[in-house]
Design a protein around this nucleic acid. Structure first.
Lengths: 112, 112
DNA sequence: AACCGTTATATTTATAAAGAAATAACGCTA
DNA sequence: TAGCGTTATTTCTTTATAAATATAACGGTT
């Protein structure tokens, strides 16, 4: 039997978690759906949990990541800023690179 | 303010966690102390928690990692196998390399 | 045979995290 | 002004995790 190697990476700001895989997944869904409640539904997550995650992201970010609006034509919505979109891309790039690095070095374990 | 990037890596065997940072820390303490109960104390962890961790390691390992003995001269003890010692070294090597990789690419986030 | 320091295990009790449900507020539309 | 679909927030309940406690078994030593 061969072992597998796994990882989780996350970004911290001032000792608080800012971005992780779950939060990036939520940001992607917001970008697709244009709404926090719809994003929550599409991820099979409670609205409250999604709201709490997004709130944490916005509070620890150095620049706005998602702009929310309440009321109006369609009831409101949530929209990623260009900064938010760039964050998703950068995070995914680093994450995939990390996986690649780890897979490349797993034989250090399997060959013992 | 600048972001920091953090990670956790772990090894899985057959969809079960085999080795992670906490388990490696425990193995190191066992190697130092020669006893699971002493290792637990030195890590300020309950004996039961330490035992459960070690049990999980032994159950999912492909080769013996720690040999325990009960009764006898000093009441018994726990001793790493050569395989166990090699695992610690390999895990730490990969983990440090992962940190280095991530730190090198953090500017992808900070420079947005 | 009694003692000792271990490993091994079950049971109970706290504590923390997650989930569910309800409600308010907002601003456009009709 | 009543209705709609959102965001925003509180409260309560449930579930999962961790911690604490107790006890058995082992095999040398004295």
């Amino acid at each position: 039997m061969n072992y597998k190697i796994k990882s989780r990476i996350w970004i911290e700001a001032d000792n608080n978690v800012f971005l992780g895989e779950g939060r990036v997944r939520l940001l992607k869904a917001i970008d697709t759906d244009g709404s926090l409640s719809k994003a929550a539904k599409s991820l099979e997550m409670s609205y409250k949990k999604a709201w709490t995650l997004l709130d944490a992201v916005n509070k620890s970010a150095t620049k706005p990541v998602v702009i929310t609006s309440v009321g109006g034509k369609n009831g409101g919505g949530a929209k990623l800023t260009p900064y938010g979109k760039s964050l998703i891309i950068a995070f995914d790039t680093i994450n995939k690179g990390c996986w690649k690095y780890l897979d490349k070095h797993l034989d250090k374990i399997n060959s013992i």
